[in-house]
């Protein structure tokens, strides 16, 4: 297993949010976690990425044999975990291209690798941004400043493409996107599917799964996974709503 979550309990503030979540993801697999508002979807993604403000009160998370929860956020990134955020942050004064370069170099240093030379780096950024229909001007602007919702999500996918994570966590990547933007973003993600790369998609709606086909679908309710299945589970959720499924489970 690449990612192994066992009986994970976590608080946000003093409130228990995750209450015994167990999930395993193998290389190359695409998992979708669906659930109603307040079920703990975003908490799960934040705890995995190492965002401050959460307290793990029980359970373990093992990533490629290492104790993920003991690693600071930057080490998790260098170890191949990437969180595409629901609300990408604006950083005035830092251009996307410099941000990407700093990230690539920092990850290389943390892994004890050589930093890629500038020419190679710039060529890769050009290739990847063109696939996402992003202009040169966009990557020279401050990170996400003045970007539309769709542009911010494309910028997340661009970062993912450059950083080549082993596990990409997509937190509500479809939220705020119109259908055209969703197609571009989903196309970018699909292009990154690979036998050594796993995805954990967190979403409220089935819509995203029409464009990125999952291998497994899990339903999260009240901080734990209540049922799991294949893509057909997502379609059942769409038809019956969370209430029916969560109650049956």
């Amino acid at each position: 297993m690449m990612l192994d979550i066992r009986d994970l309990h976590a608080n946000a503030g003093n409130k228990a949010i995750l209450k015994g979540l167990t999930l395993s993801i193998a290389p190359g697999q695409v998992h979708a976690i669906m659930g109603p508002n307040g079920s703990g979807k975003s908490t799960l993604s934040h705890v995995l990425a190492g965002k401050p403000g959460y307290e793990v009160t029980g359970g373990t998370v093992t990533w490629q044999g290492r104790d993920l929860l003991s690693m600071p956020a930057e080490e998790r990134a260098a170890a191949g975990i990437f969180l595409a955020m629901q609300y990408p942050v604006e950083i005035p004064g830092v251009t996307t291209i410099n941000f990407l370069r700093a990230a690539v170099n920092a990850q290389a240093r943390l892994r004890g690798e050589k930093e890629p030379d500038a020419v190679t780096f710039l060529r890769r950024v050009k290739e990847e941004r063109e696939k996402l229909n992003m202009s040169d001007e966009m990557v020279k602007r401050p990170v996400n400043v003045g970007f539309s919702g769709g542009e911010k999500k494309r910028n997340e996918v661009l970062q993912m493409a450059i950083l080549k994570p082993a596990l990409a966590i997509l937190d509500e990547t479809d939220s705020g996107l119109d259908i055209d933007a969703l197609k571009v973003v989903a196309g970018g993600i699909n292009a990154l599917r690979a036998p050594d790369r796993s995805f954990l998609m967190i979403t409220h709606y089935q819509r995203l799964l029409d464009y990125i086909a999952p291998d497994f679908v899990h339903v999260l309710a009240a901080g734990r996974i209540v049922t799991s299945g294949g893509p057909e589970l997502a379609r059942r959720l769409e038809a019956e709503g969370y209430d029916g499924i969560v109650k049956v489970a």
């Binding site: 190492g50 965002k51 956020a73 930057e74 990134a77 990437f82 004064g93 990230a103 990850q107 950083l163």
Partner: peptide, 29 residues
Amino acid sequence: DPTQMFYLQSRGIPATEARDMLLEAFVQQ
């Protein structure tokens, strides 16, 4: 801004470097 700090760190940039980047950006304006 802690959300900016986390954004940079979540991409692999260590805290001290992330802070320097944000301070530099602050002054560069």
